[in-house]
Amino acid sequence: MSQDAAHGNHDARYIKIWGILVVLLAISVAGPMLEIQVITLITAFGIAIVKALMVCAYFMHLNVEKRYIWYMLIISVAFMGIFYFGSAPDVMQGSGTQWKDCVLDKSCVPTNDMAKDSVNYGILR
């Protein structure tokens, strides 16, 4: 096989991958039209991950790059996971054990009844 033909094949492969990416994009846009939340989540974020991996592997050439570049990037994302899950129990809980977020929770009434709160939020025994 001549040099040029080999490169021509490369170009053709890039275009094929681009085609797959565009099809995936179409699915992710069409997904929410079914109006089923689970499917929306899968088509939106599942496909985003597939697309991202494809771009990484074929366009950024991670498939032929040294393995530890993969590890480097995956560890980066994993650290953001640590950040998310370390903060989530805290930030996601607008109301604490001894106070409530009265900005979001319009029904909140100031109360000193600690025992009631403990039952409500299940944190203190």
Binding site: F79, I82, G86, D90, G96, T97, W99, I123, L124
Partner: peptide
């Protein structure tokens, strides 16, 4: 060192269960 940060926030009203982990 990436798993210890919330020990600065023990009295910030964070979830006590997270406090134990940190």
């Amino acid at each position: 060192s990436f798993t210890v940060w919330a020990h600065h926030q023990f009295v910030s009203g964070i979830d006590p269960r997270m406090g134990n982990i940190f």
